[in-house]
């Protein structure tokens, strides 16, 4: 479904990705792991059209490199950034509405259904999103992207700074997303939920993929964990 090959990305003159290769099949959860600064966020930003890059990223056999972010979104790619990018002055409901690509929800998700999963967001529907707690904002940003009914959702460090209970909520939502046939590319630093919910994992180091395998294979490979993951 998503096939990234030999992807190079640049911030001005600094060359950050040195030929990344990875793929995500329909309906599977894949994790992209690695220490801070290795280029995980840059990889998904490049797929989303936010960073200047060369190489190839094909989605449902359409080339994404060179396309604008809104065109990529319309092809069915969803993106949840690391900083969550909540629209702080708009209400929770207005944030959700902006996730829609057309006038109303016609796909797998709608506002009522998502509010049923997170009643807390319904309670805070008319509150400016800027005053929500970190966990609530994380739920909101995920739900907002789901409103656009993506077939692949790329989520950048959704558990960062959350309480154990909220981390569990995020994991459950990602499972629910997968159950409805949406593929997930999850970027994480810690192994906590990634190993539990992923079918396959990639480990990144210095702008390249350095390991590819199943969660079991990663658990068994102490060398890779020691060299590329543990701090």
């Amino acid at each position: 479904m998503l096939e990234v090959s030999d992807l190079h990305a640049y911030y001005g003159k600094s060359h950050v990705l040195h030929g990344v290769n990875l793929r995500v099949e329909p309906g599977e959860i894949v994790s992209l792991l690695g220490r801070n600064g290795v280029g995980r966020s840059t990889t998904i930003k490049a797929v989303m059209g936010h960073v200047h890059c060369t190489g190839s990223a094909r989605f449902k056999s359409t080339e994404l490199v060179g396309k604008r972010a809104y065109e990529i979104a319309h092809l069915g790619v969803g993106y949840v950034p690391e900083d969550r990018s909540i629209f702080p002055t708009l209400t929770v409901i207005q944030n959700m509405v902006l996730g829609l690509k057309g006038k109303e929800a016609t796909g797998r998700w709608n506002m009522e259904g998502l509010f049923d999963l997170f009643p807390r967001l319904r309670e805070r529907g008319d509150t400016p999103a800027g005053v929500l707690s970190g966990g609530e904002q994380q739920m909101l940003t995920l739900c907002r992207t789901l409103m656009g009914d993506p077939d692949l959702i790329m989520v950048d460090e959704p558990t960062e700074g959350l309480s154990p209970m909220m981390v569990e909520n995020v994991a459950n939502l990602l499972r629910e997303i997968q159950k409805r046939g949406v593929a997930v590319l999850l970027v994480e630093q810690k192994l906590t939920i990634a190993l539990a919910i992923s079918r396959r994992v990639y480990v990144m180091g210095h702008g390249q993929i350095v390991f590819e395998g199943t969660p079991e294979q990663l658990k068994a490979n102490a060398d890779v964990r020691k060299e590329w993951l543990e701090v």
């Binding site: 972010a69 809104y70 990018s85 629209f87 002055t89 992207t145």
Partner: peptide, 25 residues
């Protein structure tokens, strides 16, 4: 209006607005 919401959201996070599928240009 919907386009008004898009404009307001673009005041703080234009990249996110575009990633949600709105033709920001």
């Amino acid at each position: 209006t919907r386009v008004g919401l898009v404009i307001q959201a673009s005041l703080t996070h234009p990249e996110m607005v575009e990633a949600l599928g709105h033709n920001v240009p």
